[in-house]
């Protein structure tokens, strides 16, 4: 039921990072759970199940490292075509992450003090930069339109209690 489809990528590399990620998370979770009482099998404490799950995760991480080198790729949809230069792709990845996530974090920081209108406007502009070749004028128009739409729909029509304008 997943939306979208998968791009073929370096499987070996992917399973190595995933395996290590699982081991790290599992170890971290088990380490933190040390502080929670384990209890007995009859009356389990809050630490019992987390520790068990954490160790299962570590085991799975190890298994992925060892056995899952050539995982059969899930659906490779029609979008999977079109190879690109690795360097370019990497730059595109960083750019997308930086602007999309950065925009969201900025929105979270500014919403309370600067109001919905300003925050939305900046959010749209920042996330639009995630794609190369965003032209200034269409982006400004888009930001204006979305800001207006968001303010009208969420605050005026749905009556959400969010300040529209900056409070000084």
């Amino acid at each position: 039921m997943e939306a979208g489809s998968r791009r073929p990528s370096a499987t070996l590399h992917a399973s190595a990072t995933l395996g290590f990620f699982c081991i790290m998370v599992g170890a971290g979770a088990a380490w933190i759970a040390r502080g929670y009482p384990y209890g007995t099998l009859t009356a389990m404490g809050p630490g019992f199940v987390p520790t068990a799950v954490a160790f299962l995760l570590i085991a799975l991480g190890v298994a992925i490292l060892l056995f899952d080198r050539s995982a059969p790729g899930p659906s490779q949809g029609p979008e999977a075509n079109g190879a690109a230069q690795p360097v370019q792709v990497f730059a595109g990845v960083l750019r997308g992450m930086f602007f999309v996530l950065g925009g969201i974090i900025f929105f979270g920081l500014s919403l309370r003090s600067f109001g919905l209108a300003f925050s939305t406007f900046v959010l749209v502009i920042v996330v639009s930069l995630a794609q190369r070749g965003a032209r200034p004028l269409p982006t400004l128009l888009l930001a204006t339109a979305i800001t207006l739409g968001a303010c009208v729909v969420f605050v005026l029509l749905l009556g959400l209690q969010i300040p529209l304008f900056p409070r000084f």
Partner: peptide, 20 residues
Amino acid sequence: AQGSVLRALAMIMIGLLLGM
């Protein structure tokens, strides 16, 4: 479902931890 079973089981464990 589709995809690697090991990976999906690992995701289950992470989901369980997040749920805790």
